[in-house]
Design a protein around this nucleic acid. Sequence first.
DNA 1: GGGATGTTACGGTCGCCACCGAAGCATCAG
DNA 2: CTGATGCTTCGGTGGCGACCGTAACATCCC
Lengths: 235, 235
Amino acid sequence: MTSHGQFAEIAALAGDPARAGMLHALLGGRALTATELATVAGVTPQTASGHLARLTAVDLVSVMKQGRHRYYQLASPAVARMMEAIMEVASDRQPPRKRLVVGPRDAALRAARICYDHLAGRLGVALADALIADGHAELSREGGLVTDSGLRFLNGIGVDAAAMLSSSGKGSRRALCRPCLDWSERRIHLGGALGAAICRLSFDQGWIRRVDGSRAVTITPSGRHAYREHFGAQL
Amino acid sequence: MTSHGQFAEIAALAGDPARAGMLHALLGGRALTATELATVAGVTPQTASGHLARLTAVDLVSVMKQGRHRYYQLASPAVARMMEAIMEVASDRQPPRKRLVVGPRDAALRAARICYDHLAGRLGVALADALIADGHAELSREGGLVTDSGLRFLNGIGVDAAAMLSSSGKGSRRALCRPCLDWSERRIHLGGALGAAICRLSFDQGWIRRVDGSRAVTITPSGRHAYREHFGAQL
DNA sequence: GGGATGTTACGGTCGCCACCGAAGCATCAG
DNA sequence: CTGATGCTTCGGTGGCGACCGTAACATCCC
C-alpha cells in the first residue's frame, strides 16, 4: 500500500517529459542551474522551478545554493542506477521506425560521454573491453568484479585502490566494478567505483575534456595515446 | 530526444498507481489473470484491460492466452530489476510520519516473500547472511559473486551449477549472484541466477509454500530444518 | 543606492488520461 | 442452441497537473 504509493510517486515524477529531460541532463554528473535545466527541458524557468521543487522534495535531486544561483544535481548514485535500469528497459524496445537522423551532436554523444560519474559511449565500451581482455576485470549483465591483476594495474596508473575500497560501501573488492548498460552502444561498460575512478583520472590527466553544455566529452591527443598505451584500448 | 521520450514513456507507465499495483503484484513471479490484476489494483476489469494493453505494448509485461483466460507476467528480468531500482530510491525516503500500522498480511510479507524469482524478506536476508558468513558468496550494494566454495556447496544441495552458468548470460561465474535491496528489511539479499535457483529448490523440496494471492510464502517445518541445517541460517 | 539577473510564488487556462457504464467478442458448460 | 464467464472496445465524464504570464524576492554588479 504505502509501498505502491512511494513507488508510483517516484516513477511518475521521472515519467514527465520535462522532468525526464532534466534528470537526463543531470546524468552528465555536473551540477546545473535551474535556468540551464529549464532550457534543456524546453520549458520556462517558472515551470522548471516547480518541477525541481518536487524532485528535491522526494530526494531525487539535491540543491546547493551558491550566490544567486542554485545548483541542482542527482541526489545519489541510487538515482542514477534507477535511471539506467529504466533506460535498459526502454532501449529493449526495438526502434519503431527506420532510423532517426542523428546530428553531429548525437554522434559526439555516441563517441564518448559521461554517465553520472563514469565513461560511456564507444570510449566506455572500448575501455571495458580492454580491461576484460587483459584479465583486469570481469563483467556481465548481472555483476562484475576487479581481479587481483586489475588492482595492481590500477595502482600502476595512479588509482588509489585502497581509497576506493574504503569508500565503496562494505569494502568488498567485488563492489568496485558494476556493469552499466545504456542506449547508444547496447553494450556493457564500466560503472561503480572503478568506472568513477577511471573517469576522474581521465579528467585529471587531461585525457578527456567536457563539451559545452552536453554530456559528451572529447578525447584529447594525449588521451588517445594514454588509452591505447596504458589500457590497450581500440578506439 | 528519442531517448528521453522512451525513458519518460516507460517511467510514466510505471508511475500510475493502478499500473504500479499490477506490476507490484506481478513481482510475485506468478502469471496472473486480468481480473485478478484488476482486483489488486482496485479498478474495474475494463480499466485494467486498458492498462494491461498499454503495458504489453511497451513490453513491460507479456501475455499468454490460455482458454478464456489471459495470463499476464513481467516480460523480463530487466523489468524486475527496474522496479527494484525504483523501490530502492523510493525506500530511501525516510517514512514521513511515525509508523503505519502493519496488519498480519504485511507481517507475513516481511517474514518471507517472493521477489520476482527469488526470496526476500527476513528469510531472504537470513539466507544471504548465512551464505556470506560461510564464505560461499560475497555481496555488496554494487555487485556480488559466488565463490568456489559456494559452487561446491550448491552442487552439494542439488543445484546444477553448470546449468546455471550456461543459462546466465555470458556464463561468467560472477553473474550468478546479484544484490537485491527492497523495502521491508532495507538489507541486501540474494538475487540473480543464484537467488532464483535457491528459490526454485526451496519450492521443489517443499521448504516453502505460497500464500493465497500474495507474494508472501510460509516456511514449512521441513524448510525451517533445512535452512538451519544446510545453510546455517538464523531464522 | 539603482538596475540587472536568477529564482520562486500565485492564478488561471487547457489538455490529457484514468475511470466507469454499456455493449461486443471469445470461450466454456450444459 | 442458450446461458455464463472472462476479457476487450467504445463513448463520455471528471479531475489532476503541466504550462505560462505576472509578480515578488534574493543576490550580484556598478
